[in-house]
């Protein structure tokens, strides 16, 4: 039974369109959206590993301008309303992480706001 539930959950997470009809699934404001840097299915499952890999490349070796940068994610996916990936259940990162019950550690240090707007506000 438990296996079945897990299987269903994975299936659910793997198919975004299915979310739309699900009343408990997060309704996300995907920001600018458009073509993601990778296949959305891949991103949904592996974004953390991709980000972690990029993080070490940038931090330790100084590789800049990669399409896998966290700032890039935020730039595309910050909500059109508050320019942030955090804030409420419809915000891109927070919405899904709350739904999945996974703590996000990124934004204790990193800005959750779209870079251009954050800078204009300074």
């Amino acid at each position: 039974m438990k296996l079945m539930k897990n299987f269903l959950l994975v299936l659910l997470l793997a198919m975004t369109p299915a979310w739309a009809g699900d009343s408990v699934a997060p309704r996300l404001d995907i920001g600018k959206g458009g073509q993601c840097v990778e296949d959305p299915k891949l991103m949904r499952r592996n974004h953390m590993d991709i980000l972690r890999h990029q993080r070490d490349e940038t931090m330790r070796s100084g590789v800049r301008g990669s399409r896998h940068s966290l700032a890039g994610c935020v730039d595309c996916h910050a909500s059109s309303r508050n320019n942030s990936v955090l804030g409420g259940s419809e915000n891109f990162c927070q919405g899904c992480h709350t739904y999945a019950g996974v703590r996000i550690d990124c934004f204790e240090c990193h800005s959750s706001k779209r870079k251009t707007v954050a800078e204009a506000g300074k």
């Binding site: 204790e108 240090c109 990193h110 800005s111 954050a118 300074k122």
Partner: peptide, 16 residues
Amino acid sequence: EPLTDQNPDVPRGKGT
């Protein structure tokens, strides 16, 4: 202390 509204280019955070 906990920080908010960091510069996007300069991540900084409490406890580090």
